[in-house]
Amino acid sequence: MTNPATRIGKRFAALKAEGRAGLVTFVTAGDPDLETSREILFGLPGAGADVIEIGMPFSDPMADGPAIQASSLRALKDGMTLKKTLELVTGFRDTDDDTPVVLMGYYNPIYIYGVDDFVADARKAGVDGLIIVDLPPEEVDELWKPARAAGIDFIFLTAPTSDDARLPVIVERASGFVYYVSITGITGTRSADIADVGAALRRIRKHTELPIAVGFGIRTPEQAAEIASVADAAVVGSALVDIIAANLDPGGRPKEGVAEKLLALVSDLAAGIGGAGEKVA
């Protein structure tokens, strides 16, 4: 069940009331630079993003594909750090107090930052949830316990390989929503068959009442619409990150209008799933 007291809970309840699925967008903090990243982030709710996932850059994102690894490396090259990522969220919260922000990434930068400091600073910044790719239930407690105590949701990944024995182990600690990775593979590669996704979601719903967001391989408004017909939300990441990669000058600096182009795709995606995004030029 969603918790009506949290931004994530409120947002999914509102989506349910509207009778539509949500759009979850992923971009990496600081990609390609802090200023452009801020412009994109601040524009996402207006373009129709219902939940915002922000990638915490990591040098070795082993479960992600080339597009997202490249985005991490662009951000790191420009000097992005976990501290600056949290400051970015703080700035965002000054302009938007409703749209849930979920930080996604790998454990090492958090471990080095210090778990308790990270949880305190993330809460203060207005972070609503965490997806830590390389913390399966077996290893998660050292971050999960303090995060939940601070009221931060912990979103777990489920995959086609998560069987009926594995699912209860995963959803036991889940809150906010559950993320279904629709393919056995890395981000931004292939797309899943909708019938397979539907069957998988029915199986997961036997184990949890939390909303389910589906990601990996969703690139177009049509694919988003298809996923939205069976899921509670569709997650789009690599397709957005690719727009940044395609709009850099030879020195790696963003060309004019990259944020607008990215936000235009977000509003198309939102329109695809019947979202309320305003049309961005």
Partner: peptide, 20 residues
């Protein structure tokens, strides 16, 4: 049993890999 040597070791992998 969980693969730890003191605080070291373990299984820090994506859920997709856990069943494997």
């Amino acid at each position: 049993e969980a693969g730890h040597f003191g605080i070291y070791g373990g299984r820090f992998v994506a859920e997709t890999l856990m069943p494997l």
